[in-house]
Design a protein around this nucleic acid. Structure first.
Lengths: 333, 333
DNA sequence: ACCTCGTGAGAAAGCGGTTTCTCCGTTAGT
DNA sequence: ACTAACGGAGAAACCGCTTTCTCACGAGGT
């Protein structure tokens, strides 16, 4: 009588029930079509031995793992955390798990990361806003099934979910214009960021459509500290409204302006972007553009789902942000 | 000439190089000790066929997947996101990936989730502050290697990383006491939450150590809306200081009090717990207790690492939060 | 010249399932 | 009564890689 070491295997269940492994497999997967008594015996044996199919072995035989990889630039970034949250919840409903990894904000590492993680699972959701276009084009076909998040790219066959940052900031600018503002500052995000480029392009268009406005571009960044650092430049810029790259920058800016004795919104209007949960509760409450990051994850799974069922999902989906007017901006007229 | 379908297999590389699969395997894993020319030929073939070992097959043969599961109650919760972030980054340095799942705040589902995810990977990091103790005791042995986060439990053999919430709130209470406050309100979190229980126990001890204080307990919750809802009760409670279960509750409370025309900190001092990134930038800046959630993830990986190398790590590690005094609390003396 | 030992590399047996293919026994049809 | 069809279940191949075991060959010792 040998003492069994690890968990029970299908062979042991088969022996215990006096049937073949094939039969056990069929019973376990609901593909069994014979004597009900046999099935019952197998089930009893499985229960007795506390048998659970080895997931790895199943995956190997089946050719699918039931997991999907998610690659993001930085897991510490709330925006990507929201994407993950939405994605993981939706995926879980279909019995899929998410394998996560981040590139520590090194876009050049992302192709390798994505490739590596792809080998461990059935598909990849790639969130690579800063990856070089060439890299993306060569990488994408090797990742299939692939869903792109926040990286609209018609060159690539993969479905893509993204936020229309341009439309969002345009709506904000239009609102500010209608409120009487003419002299704007834009606190720009990272040079290489696609979403920053979209904002810039949109604001350029806005400026040329409205020749009576000025738009000062101030290099900033993505964090509170970058907003703080930009306060000086904004104070000097002789503007009535500052549009920050995101809410964190806006928070920093408002605090930095306070140190200069500049009040928001009385002396200058400040708007953010993203609508982080706390934006509504700051004082003054932050006017911002609500970006549905969680929806991005949810919709990404929707596309992935159809992809995994080898149907062709809609190619490019663009979610539109929503303007949230609050107390940090003033109407001049 | 048959057209190859999927990616190259080890057998194909072997055929191409004119060697056996065993040799290819050894070369790929650096265990080859023969003619260097053979190794070079294998490497050339691998390159020519763009061969990459099938991760699943390797895992099955090796008995290890290079992935670790993380179970949390809610991926949308910033605290758990920070744990994930710290964990994923540390794990990545050792070549491990993280498979995440959340229980949608259903503690009763967590045993099954953890068991399921454990079958897909080499170990589990379990973050289950609300799981029933009995469940944990029966579950833990089946999950080994296991690291517990935020769930100190000497009954269970697994190493555990946690925050000393009791010490944190005690330090806050002591500071407030020294500032002259005597009448306190505590906005309690979820009934079943261990971390809430720790805060309560600590405050009870504080109250009995300081008979000249009163401590009103007000049921609240974990979100901004719960803080808002509690404002009324706090306003009625005739206290000089309110300690919120966490920063979100504090944010809600401050906003709710403002609606009652009650100023913070002039009329009542409010303190939070967690030190979320925005706490410092609110107005008034929030006095709070900084909780190192990211470190929790980092340290969890440290323990996991020693566990995976089958050494015995320190059993129970407790991280101490740090008091952050800011503008939302006033000294009365 | 013969035997032993060391070395390089292949054959084959797993890892733990799934699935095709095959076989055997029973039932129905004429 | 004989055969065709069918249904139930097992044998074996396979998924792709690792690793032990085995073997052939050449070198060195006596």
């Amino acid at each position: 009588m040998t003492t069994r070491s690890g968990p029970a295997t299908i062979a042991e269940v088969a022996a215990h029930a006096g049937v073949s492994p094939a039969t056990v497999s069929r019973v376990m997967n609901g593909r069994f079509v014979g004597e009900p008594s046999v099935a019952e015996r197998v089930r009893a044996s499985a229960r007795a031995l506390d048998y659970h199919p080895n997931h790895l072995a199943r995956s190997l035989a089946l050719g699918r793992t039931g997991a999907v990889g998610l690659v993001v630039p930085d897991l510490a970034n709330p925006a990507f955390q929201e994407v993950l949250s939405g994605l993981a919840k939706s995926a879980a409903e279909d019995g899929y798990r998410i394998l996560v990894t981040d590139s520590a904000e090194h876009p050049e590492d992302e192709p390798e990361l994505a490739t590596e993680i792809r080998r461990r699972c059935d598909a990849v959701v790639l969130c690579a806003p800063r990856m070089r276009h060439d890299d993306l084009v060569t990488l994408a076909p090797t990742l299939d099934p692939l869903v792109l998040v926040n990286r609209p790219d018609v060159t690539v066959a993969a479905p893509s979910l993204s936020i229309d940052y341009g439309a969002g900031i345009a709506e904000l600018a239009r609102y500010m214009y209608e409120s009487g503002h003419r002299r704007f500052a834009f606190l720009a995000g990272p040079e290489m960021s696609v979403s920053n480029a979209l904002r810039l392009a949109s604001l350029d268009r806005f400026a040329s459509d409205h020749p009576d406005t000025t738009m000062v571009r101030i290099p900033s960044g993505v964090g509170i500290e970058n907003g703080l650092a930009a306060a000086d430049a904004v104070a000097r810029a002789d503007v009535t409204a500052a549009l920050a790259y995101n809410d964190l920058v806006a928070v920093g800016l408002i605090n930095g302006l306070a140190e200069h004795g500049i009040r928001v919104p009385e002396d200058i209007s400040v708007a953010g972007f993203d609508d982080i949960p706390y934006a509504r509760y700051m004082s003054p409450p932050l006017t911002t553009v609500a970006v549905p990051h969680t929806d991005l994850g949810v919709e990404a799974w929707d596309r992935m789902q159809t992809l995994l069922n080898s149907r062709r999902p809609a190619g490019q989906v663009v979610l539109t942000p929503r303007l949230e007017v609050r107390g940090s901006t003033d109407r001049l007229i």
